[in-house]
């Protein structure tokens, strides 16, 4: 346990020392929040069923953070660790292989959580954030969304030959999804044709589920999302456990 705590603590410090990862996980979502919060404020809006821009943006930006850490941070870190031989060095220690991997997931999860908590804090302090859901429901949805995207990240880390390719492929997946899934901007402002396409993006399901539970909708409205994300998690775990390489 002491080994696991030391290892994850060092990895957290390393995450925060990497400017890109820390910026996109912790700072960029806040920048978005303040930018659109300043432009639109958080007045109740009929387009959002009486919620304000900030109210609906915070669960959406949370989904954005999940996809950033899963698709980008996790896959790039793991590919770079493999490419450079850092995984190799770790494996020479008595630390068990599954502990090495679990540590990475735990660190990325904690950073994702920190990103969301910062958003909530800023929303509460500055924009009088409205939350009508149940904390436990949102926490579970956050967990499911995170796990599904982390498993996608692991698939990328497993099949990409190096960190550079992982980064490029990660961006190719990430950016369109950011804008078309409702994570970066509300689906309501997108035309119908794009919204039909959005249904096929995994991130859309995270956004829909988080926004729904945020305003107090019941889980029964989100069975599609649950199945899609559970399926994605399962597929990701199977694929990456078959293809993951240590060197």
């Amino acid at each position: 346990m002491r080994a696991f705590l030391k290892y994850t603590w060092v990895e957290i410090k390393l995450f925060l020392r990497e400017p890109m990862g820390a910026f996109f996980t912790l700072v960029f979502p806040l920048v978005m929040l303040f930018l659109f919060g300043t432009i639109y404020g958080n007045e109740p809006d009929a387009m959002f069923n009486g919620y304000g821009t900030v109210d609906i943006s915070i669960p959406a930006y949370t989904a954005m953070i999940i996809s950033t850490t899963g698709i980008m941070a996790l896959s790039i870190t793991m590919s770079a660790y493999r490419e450079k031989g850092i995984l190799r060095r770790l494996r020479l220690s008595p630390l068990q292989p599954h502990v090495i991997l679990a540590g990475q997931v735990v660190v990325i999860f904690m950073m994702t959580l920190a990103g969301m908590l910062l958003l909530i804090l800023a929303g509460k302090l500055v924009y009088d954030l409205r939350f009508d859901g149940r904390v436990l429901d949102v926490a579970l949805a956050f967990l499911l969304g995170s796990v599904s995207f982390f498993s996608l990240g692991f698939v990328l880390a497993s099949v990409m030959p190096n960190a550079r390719t992982a980064q490029v492929v990660g961006m190719v997946i990430f950016y369109p999804m950011l804008f078309l899934s409702g994570a970066g901007m509300p689906l309501e402002i997108l035309p119908e044709s794009i919204r039909n396409f959005s249904k096929y993006l995994p991130l859309t399901h995270v956004v829909t589920m988080l926004r729904g539970l945020w305003i107090g909708e019941s889980w029964s409205l989100h069975t599609t999302e649950i199945w899609v994300l559970l399926g994605m998690t399962l597929a990701g775990v199977v694929i990456s456990s078959l293809t993951f390489r240590w060197e």
Binding site: K84, I86, R89, L92
Partner: peptide, 9 residues
């Protein structure tokens, strides 16, 4: 190891 590394930071 001949080819091993630690994280840069």
């Amino acid at each position: 190891l001949q080819q091993a590394h630690l994280p840069d930071n």
